[in-house]
């Protein structure tokens, strides 16, 4: 293998959990719901997937279980905010804290247990192409699945009828309600989708990326995913770009340590968090552009009678 391939593989791997979480949150936010609990949903997805893979040996079961677990967490959020009209910011924080506690509670007996490193299924091309050939072989199926999710979400939001309804609900729930769209149901489904995707993102971390369980192992990726959605100005293609950018920043520290760069590891570990702040500054400073891109009703509750 040449020098670039491992870097590309590592970047794609580090970016993948962010893609799932951020694309899910993007759909949720497009429907006008701001769910800040991504970190908590990812953690619960991570521990559920870890336990399922450990007991059943099947990655598919683990990932599916994580999606269900993430969706259940999102359901809790949706019930409190959409049915009971609670403040979305506060409920999102509650979900993040609750998910951290719940995942630590469930995962108590699993700390330090390691999974067998999954052998990537990968594709073997009939002809040998440099870079692309070994790359395709080394990638985990969940990486490919993330590309499918990206294609699906892009098509759904831009081209499908339901996607149009979802965007209408996010822009103007009152008008959407007036023309007969089920505002609350669409918001429920968008929130559940976001939860399921966050769960898969967490599953990728505990089953493929690590692969082990540590308390709080998501380490802020849920929050970075939230920042990515802002960075992407709610466009799926830019989410992909941003996720791989962050994946690259995350892995810099490993390669820098390998190369013997004389900076304390703690400072290298700060990079993704500092980069998130820089990105937020760059993207948010143009207030008009933010207003034009953000879903108008984002974070605002909707009650048909008011």
């Amino acid at each position: 293998m040449d020098a670039i391939t491992p870097v590309v593989i590592a970047t794609l791997g580090a970016g993948t959990p962010l893609i799932y979480a951020a694309l899910g949150e993007l759909v949720t936010e497009k429907a006008g719901v701001l769910n800040l609990g991504v970190e908590g949903m990812m953690l619960v997805g991570a521990i559920v997937a870890f336990i399922l893979v450990l007991t059943t040996g099947s990655t598919t079961v683990g990932v599916a279980g994580a999606a269900v677990a993430g969706a259940l967490m999102a359901l809790l959020f949706a019930f409190v905010t959409l049915t009971l009209q609670a403040n979305q910011v506060a409920a999102g924080l509650a979900l993040a804290i609750f998910g951290t506690g719940a995942s630590a509670f469930i995962g108590k007996g699993y700390i330090g247990v390691a999974l067998e490193r999954a052998t990537p299924a990968g594709f073997t091309l009939p002809i040998d192409i440099p870079l692309v050939g070994p790359l395709l072989q080394a990638l985990h199926p969940l990486v490919y699945l993330s590309w499918l999710v990206f294609a699906g979400v892009s098509w759904f939001l831009a081209r499908s009828r339901v996607g149009l309804a979802l965007r209408a609900v996010g822009e103007s729930p009152g008008s959407a309600h007036a023309v007969g769209y089920p505002v609350i149901r669409i918001r429920y489904l968008a929130t559940l989708f976001g939860g399921a995707m966050a769960g898969i993102g967490g599953a990728y971390l505990s089953v493929v990326y690590a692969p082990l369980w540590l308390e709080g192992m998501v380490a802020g990726r849920g929050w970075i995913a939230l920042a990515l959605v802002v960075f992407a100005t709610w466009r799926p293609a830019r989410v992909m770009l941003g996720a791989y950018l962050f994946g690259g920043i995350t892995i810099i520290q490993f390669f820098a340590q390998g190369a013997g760069v004389g900076v304390a590891s703690q400072f290298m570990s700060m990079l993704p968090y500092l980069a998130t702040i820089v990105v937020l500054i760059l993207i948010s400073r143009d207030a008009t552009r933010m207003r034009l891109n953000a879903p108008v009703s984002l974070g605002k509750p909707f009650h048909p009678s008011s």
């Binding site: 908590g40 509650a94 979900l95 804290i97 609750f98 998910g99 951290t100 506690g101 719940a102 630590a104 509670f105 108590k108 308390e215």
Partner: peptide, 8 residues
């Protein structure tokens, strides 16, 4: 972690 669970 039960404490954190109840707090959340």
């Amino acid at each position: 972690a039960a404490a954190a669970l109840f707090q959340g």
